[in-house]
């Protein structure tokens, strides 16, 4: 169980001469549910973009499943079993829900049709609301449904690790109460998850471990259970109040 799936070592990400991420090291073990919290602009999204190959890092290394993936373009990284649900969801709004799901399985090509159909059934069971929406344009879905579609689409590449960037972005608490249990369920089923979340109160409750990022670096990390009681966390991210 200590098998390390994703290892990020001394990662730096720069836009021009501006360093968004100064030095970040973190890891996700196989089967783990890891959270990253931190305020806006702390560099969380930049780390995720570097891991998923959307942006090349300026220094450091990223290893996934024993293979170095630093600087590889995202389409190669996905092929290795790392799927990302990006910040802002980025569903293909003018294509149908079904087309979005098919694109999620793009790398599986035309092979194993029956297995693909079975997997599609399973993700639709996870998010039953999508089933009725299959022929609808994805852009017409509500924010919560779009997030579900984005996750479902990510799952269809059969990833070993699923990264979700800002799950709660623009979503009502009611919908979050629906989404988080699904993630827990997926994780229980064996999927490793790396969740980036601004709403610390939620993230700390569902994850095993959490990294706290600030100003382009990791401020602290530890068991989520421990962090949830940490006064510094309470202070900064939970706004001076008890989280429970």
């Amino acid at each position: 169980m200590t098998d390390v799936l994703l290892k990020v070592n001394d990662l730096k990400v720069a836009y021009g001469r501006i360093e968004a991420v100064r030095s970040v090291s973190m890891e996700v073990r196989r089967g783990e549910f890891v959270g990253i919290i931190g305020s806006n602009g702390a560099g969380k999204t930049s780390v995720m973009r570097a891991i998923s190959g959307v942006k090349s890092p300026s220094a450091g290394s990223i290893t996934f499943d024993g293979v170095e993936i630093t600087g590889l373009p995202s389409h190669t990284v996905v092929a290795k079993g790392l799927a990302m649900v990006p910040e802002g969801r980025h569903i293909f709004g003018d294509q149908t829900v079904e087309d979005n799901l098919i694109l999620g399985a793009y790398l599986r090509g035309g092979r194993a049709k029956t297995q693909l159909a079975a997997d599609t059934e399973r993700v639709l069971d996870l998010f039953p609301v999508l089933r009725a929406r299959l022929p609808q344009a994805a852009g017409s879905l509500s924010g919560g449904e779009q997030q579900m579609l984005a996750i479902a689409r990510g799952l269809l590449s059969r990833p070993t690790l699923l990264i979700i960037d800002e799950l709660s972005l623009g979503l009502a608490p009611k919908i979050l109460d629906l989404l988080f249990p699904v993630l827990t369920e997926l994780n229980r089923a064996g999927l490793s998850i790396l969740l980036v979340e601004q709403m610390a109160s939620y993230a700390l409750q569902v994850t095993h471990r959490t990294y706290v990022m600030e100003n382009g670096g990791v401020l602290m990390h530890g068991d989520s259970e421990t962090l949830i009681g940490d006064p510094r966390i309470l202070d900064t991210y939970l706004g001076h109040r008890e989280a429970s």
Binding site: S52, G53, V54, P73, S74, H75, V78, A79, A83, M84, P86, H90, I91, F92, G93, D94, Q95, D99, I102, L103, G104, Y106, L107, G109, G110, R153, G154, S157
Partner: peptide
């Protein structure tokens, strides 16, 4: 498959990359 990939790239290059395109 290729046509869908083209539409995906047209709509959103980054998301297309995340689909493995």
């Amino acid at each position: 498959r290729l046509g869908r990939a083209m539409r995906a790239v047209a709509a959103d290059r980054m998301a297309a990359g995340l689909m493995g395109i």
